[in-house]
Amino acid sequence: MWSYALKRAGTTAVTLLAASIIIFAFIHIVPGDPIYVLLGDTATPDQIDALRHQLGLDQPIILQYLTWIGHVLEGNLGRSIFFQAPVLSVIADGAETSALLATMTMIWVTLIGVPIGMIAAVRHGTWLDQGLSGAAMLMASIPTFWVGLYLILIFAAWLGWFPSSGYPSIFEGGLVNLRYLVLPSLALAAPNAALILRLTRASMLDVSREDYVRTARAKGIRPWQVVVRHILRNALLAVVSAFGFTFAALLSEAVVTETVFALPGIGRLVVQSILRRDYPVIQGVILVIVVVYLLINLIVDLSYRLLDPRVELQ
């Protein structure tokens, strides 16, 4: 297990290194010299040279990369042009909203996707199964922002049950502020719950065709016990590994959802920074999301191994 964990952590580090090169290259291939973005059109050549030297942009590219990655490892992601503040603190401001939104969405996804997928699998081949599977496919085909807009219309504008936009911190207003995240998390959960539903169903059907399920039935235990003790656990192993993927999809889909609901999260920060050409922030956010995504995948992968006793020999 430990050697596997080390090996897996090693590949993650290598992937991260390669990704960091791409992210570093990003700022160098954006159109227009970042210096002009910083100084505007009116800068004199002397000013430009001075800043170029100050930022280290006159050094060889490899040295620039090493300087940058060194700063990143110290937690220095550069300064935001728009906010005139360190990028890390700008990102940290959005982190609470994004983390809570993602967590709440994952809760919906689990609560909706797994049980309904189970029901569809147990009722395999009936009209109920076909209806649920069809509904899941429909849900996976709906744009989250469109659902979001209609959720705002119905539950905020017409019924007034939930706030339509924004999110004040729970550290200032208490846990009731979580109500601001109900509609966005539901919108974001819909397509992802659909994916988990279909995956749960498919892997339960796969497992139920296994020989050991037949052995369990031959013992004379009741059908629900066969499902709970033999099919479910083995099927959920496959679902667990999809959670990392879902989380990744969620990070990027949150970009749109946060825009619709005007949530002060990392996703909206990306979009606004793109429109403001605040490249250091874009670069920093992409780096942070990739790190989070790779770490989650690593954790999911290792916990998957932990849940499956077969790996001891591998």
Binding site: E210, D211, Y212, R214, T215, A216, R229, H230, R233, N234, L237, L307, D308, P309, R310
Partner: peptide
């Protein structure tokens, strides 16, 4: 009892 002892037992129990 079945033909395939390799697959007839639940691998995670």
């Amino acid at each position: 009892i079945f033909q395939e002892p390799m697959t007839s037992l639940n691998p995670v129990r």
